[in-house]
Amino acid sequence: MWDYSEKVQDHFFNPRNAGAAAGANAVGDVGSLSCGDALRLTLKVNPETEVIEAAGFQTFGCGSAVASSSALTEMIKGMTVDQALKISNQDIADYLDGLPPEKMHCSVMGREALQAAVANFRGVEWKDDHEEGALICKCFAVDAVLIEETIRANNLSSVQEVTFYTKAGGGCSACFEGIENILNKVLAERAETEAAAPPPPPEPVKPAKAPLTNLQRMRRIEHTLEAIRPQLQADRGDIELVEVDFDKKIAFVNLSGACSGCQMAAATLGGVQQRVMEDLGEFIRVLPATEMGKF
């Protein structure tokens, strides 16, 4: 049996706003074919103020799908459409005191239904842009499609890199075999395309690089952090560079938003450190700025 929070159980056994909203003028139908969950969200939006006056849901789905739908309707009532659109799937999960990782897609479905309903209200077409795959990492709810796309997009070649980029495998590590299988598949394809392509011309011998100045190093680190930020921001966190101590080879950073206090902060910093080292071409530690006085 799932470890559902009391709030999830409450919203499942006593769903709020079940059925179509009376006088609705917006409807969003979304679903996940592989998972079999589907949701119809109906909204009554005041055309003048764009305030959501009523919301109703109909759900074909499991306990957490019903609970996520019910929670969503409660959350958005009284909000303006723009306010409602700011609700993330994590907000829905938080409202329910959390969902099991296998069930996070239920909250995603809620957010998508909202987007679809708002699009319907505004008379524009909404297209779902994410694809869902089999769940690989149960600790952080990372699915196969995301892992494969990330491997391709970033040319990854090791399980460790996959963990740094997606968090998959960063917890109990039981999914390493699953990650390796995806890696092997992509690497095999990559080898084929490389074999098909003409051999690359021999690389010109590079002149020995002059060591970077401290200013150049600092800029590189900043550049790397800028590249990482969108990923963190997607999880509602952020990172900024505070100080670099080149003698001790430490970069101090501030983690903010959802990253601060996150149990995974250490793993996140580990991943950041790896990227910084790769870009910089030398060893450097990345530590939270709170550690600054200790060195």
């Binding site: 159980q9 056994f13 079999g36 306990g63 869902e132 089999a134």
Partner: peptide
């Protein structure tokens, strides 16, 4: 959906199982 049925059955003390995706944790 099966899991929803099982949760309600369980509330009445009746134990059964389902072929639904959601009871297994897989998406299929």
């Amino acid at each position: 959906e099966g899991e929803a049925i099982l949760l309600m059955l369980n509330k009445q003390g009746i134990a059964a199982s389902s072929g639904s995706a959601c009871t297994s944790g897989s998406l299929e």
